[in-house]
Amino acid sequence: MEWGDFSNLQLDAVREVGNIGTGNAATALSQLLGRAVDMGVPEADLIPIYELAGRYGSPETPVCAVLIRAEGDFPCNLIFVIDEGAGQELANLLIAMDISTLDPELQIQMRDSALGEVGNIILGAFLNAISMLTGYVMPASVPAVAHDMLGSVMDIVASIFGVIGDTALLVKTSLQVKDVECEVNGNVIMVPDPGSLETLLQKLGV
């Protein structure tokens, strides 16, 4: 199969994987925070990799990104991306105590640890959904947290897809935590390793 040459049926199947994954992730996040979490309709798009940098916002927007890597039957990277401000808000929700009197370095570590855990739970739930759907075994890494420009995060996504082609198939879903003063919106991006999406589609029978 030529990379980038996916049928509508196949795109629908990938979208459905995103849908189930996000549903699972929203439930997990909701249980973790004890709050309602809404999810958006997942998008599965074929995008020229050269347009990725500006696809989801200005390339210089500060974001927090959590990445986990899954190996095994469906090797891929999953990335949870959230605006830096919203990320800090989410970390505070999870820490649920006033840490402003602590050493600043310690505060950063605690927030990063909380964000890593949020990412781990969201992305782990997403992976579990794929696993249940396909029967695949996909051991996941521990989460890696980065605070950086949106463009730089997408730059890495583009490089991974760029290895074998000029098109990215991105599944993007949004999660929204309800009933907090600051709205918290995050996106999950699934980045399959070169060639592994074909395996998934075969397994799904499309």
Partner: peptide, 10 residues
């Protein structure tokens, strides 16, 4: 002014 925004691994 030649500009590139948001280099990651590139």
């Amino acid at each position: 002014l030649l500009v590139t925004l948001g280099l990651g691994s590139c």
